[in-house]
Simulated assay, not measured.
Amino acid sequence: MQHQDDLLLRLPEVLARIPVSRATWYAGVKSGRYPKPVSLGPRCVAWKASDIQQLVSQGVSDALPVH
């Protein structure tokens, strides 16, 4: 059984935890606001569950983009 920290989350799973749009998420990754993905293949990426959990535990307001 995998430990939760070792799990990888695909984008739909990430966006279910962080309520932002796909475009906002990728803009945040590019700017460094959100964690970088792990490459699983040429066109396939995922994020470490531990990184996403850390972002969620900081609070959703901190994770949302500033307007």
Rank of each mutant, 00 (worst) to 15 (best):
R22H: 14
G32K: 08
S61Q: 11
V60D: 06
A46G: 04
V60K: 09
R43L: 00
A27D: 09
V66N: 13
K36L: 08
Q53D: 15
L9A: 03
S50E: 13
K30P: 01
S21D: 10
H3D: 15
S57W: 04
W47M: 01
K30D: 05
R43Y: 07
I18H: 04
W25Y: 15
Q53G: 05
D62R: 10
D5V: 03
V60F: 09
A46H: 10
W25I: 05
Y34Q: 09
S39M: 03
L7T: 03
L40S: 06
L7N: 04
C44E: 10
T24I: 14
A16Y: 04
H3G: 06
S61D: 15
L40Y: 07
W47F: 08
Q53S: 12
D51T: 04
Y26M: 01
Q53C: 03
R22P: 10
Q54E: 11
V66H: 13
M1K: 03
D5M: 00
Q53R: 07
M1F: 10
Q54L: 15
W25L: 13
Q58V: 02
H3F: 02
V45C: 15
D62C: 09
D6R: 02
G28T: 09
P12D: 01
S21P: 13
L9Q: 07
V56D: 01
A63S: 12
P42M: 04
Q54I: 12
V60M: 11
A16F: 04
W47R: 04
A27Q: 12
S39G: 01
W25G: 12
R33E: 03
